[in-house]
Simulated scan of single mutants.
Amino acid sequence: MARNILPLHKRDKTDTPSTRNASTIVPSEQAPSPSHEPKHHHQPHRPRHENALHSYVNNFWRNEIVAAAAEFAGTFMFLFFAFGGTQVANTAALFSDRATAGQENSGLTQAPNTSVLLYISLIFGFSLMVNVWVFFRVSGGLFNPAVTLGLLLIGAIKPIRACFCFFSQMFAGMAAAGIVSAILPGPLNVSTNLGTGVTPTMGVFLEMFLTSLLVFTIFMLAAEKHKATFLAPIGIGLALFVAEMVGVFFTGGSLNPARSFGPCVVTRNFPGYHYVYWFGPLMGTLLAFGMYRIVKIVEYQTVNPGQDFDDHEAAAFKPPKDAETAEQVGRPNVAALAVEEAVEEAVRIVSRGSREERDEEERIDGRLERGEQPRYVSERELLGRTGHGRV
Rank of each mutant, 00 (worst) to 15 (best):
A175K: 05
I218G: 04
L221S: 14
H45P: 05
R358V: 02
E381K: 15
K227M: 03
D308T: 10
S127F: 01
T196L: 07
I160C: 01
A239F: 05
L142S: 09
V116H: 14
R358E: 14
L337A: 10
Q307I: 04
L383E: 13
L213V: 13
L6R: 13
G237C: 11
V343N: 14
F72T: 07
A182F: 09
G387K: 11
D359V: 10
G74F: 01
E324R: 15
G384W: 13
M77I: 10
K158S: 14
F72R: 05
R363L: 13
N105E: 01
G253Y: 03
H54D: 12
Q43R: 08
H9P: 08
T285S: 15
D310L: 07
V26E: 15
F279Y: 06
R48H: 11
H36A: 15
K321G: 07
S139L: 00
P112E: 13
E29P: 06
N189H: 15
Y277I: 02
S121F: 02
F270M: 14
V242C: 13
L337I: 11
A232Q: 05
G195M: 03
R331I: 04
W61R: 04
F205H: 07
F81Y: 12
L383F: 04
I123C: 08
V266I: 15
I65L: 14
M174P: 00
V343H: 09
I218P: 02
H49D: 04
E340K: 12
E71N: 08
T86M: 07
A31L: 09
V66N: 12
T114F: 13
L231Y: 04
A99H: 03
I120T: 03
V339T: 07
I179Q: 00
L108P: 00
T229G: 02
G247N: 11
T285A: 12
T86E: 09
G173D: 06
M77W: 08
L213W: 00
F83E: 02
L142A: 09
N90Y: 01
L210Q: 08
H40N: 14
G306E: 06
V265Q: 07
H274Y: 11
F216R: 03
F261H: 06
L117V: 06
A228G: 08
H312W: 05
A82K: 05
Q87H: 12
E357M: 05
P7I: 12
A82H: 09
G262W: 01
A326N: 10
D311C: 03
F249Y: 13
R385Y: 09
L79V: 12
A223D: 00
